[in-house]
Design a protein around this nucleic acid. Structure first.
Lengths: 121, 121
DNA sequence: GCTATAATGCAAATCATTCGCATTTAGTAT
DNA sequence: ATACTAAATGCGAATGATTTGCATTATAGC
């Protein structure tokens, strides 16, 4: 994969972001890059394993740099995504299914984040 | 929510299906019901908690009857979805995040199902 | 049965994502 | 440095899933 200025910029934006970003969010930060190009590059990065594509529910997919493997907790109120890690090895053992070879483990929690906890009925 | 013939048919199809179905799959089984109506009803059922909407990766969302809570293992080769259960209570304790109130727990495994295990490189 | 309201069909509108194709550019060989 | 080839871009149009507006019809209560 070639190292183009665009690709560097896209990775840069993702790298400096605390949260996962959608293609359009990236495009908002880099309006000079065509949206189709952003999609194409994101896809390339996902294939290369550089970033991860998240389908957390609704409309747009979110993308994030693949640092260490982690999981996601999503606030029902504000859709904020919090990262957390657990002992994946251990979980994989717990989840052992007959005949199923686990290559990837994804835990998604839904709930209420600290900021909105009090507001919950 | 009114009990209409259409709604009963849709639930029936989901009830008799081993796997989660997409809106278009349901429409294929019930071609006399308008696709928009199917979408509207699926949404109502989700709100009512009767069914669950799954966003397992790609294109279409999948819907399934909400029996007992369970999780999903998806085969990378054939996209078959296998259900499994674990001790959710226990996991919630393990995952405890400071300031985050967990209301829902979703585990998604990716890997290779029994049928395709041998074919993996 | 009569009525008010929710459900349905249909077609058009949205929205995210993808594609085709002509043009430009990175990486490489000359 | 210069020329070349394949990959990367931009742009606009195409797709595909899902939603919406609105006129029509059916359901639940009276």
């Amino acid at each position: 994969m070639r190292i183009t200025k665009h690709r560097q910029e896209i990775l840069d934006v993702l790298d400096h972001s605390e949260e996962a970003l959608s293609a359009s969010a990236i495009h908002a930060s880099l309006p000079h890059i065509n949206l189709a190009t952003i999609y194409r590059n994101l896809e390339s990065f996902v294939e290369a394993g550089t970033i991860t594509k998240l389908n957390l529910g609704g409309e747009e997919a979110q993308y994030e740099i693949q640092d260490e493997p982690h999981h996601h907790a999503i606030c029902n109120e504000c859709n904020k995504v919090i990262h957390f890690t657990v002992d994946d090895e251990k979980l994989v053992k717990e989840f052992a299914l007959p005949g199923f070879l686990i290559t990837n483990l994804e835990v998604t929690l839904r709930g209420t984040c600290a900021t909105h906890k009090t507001k919950t009925k």
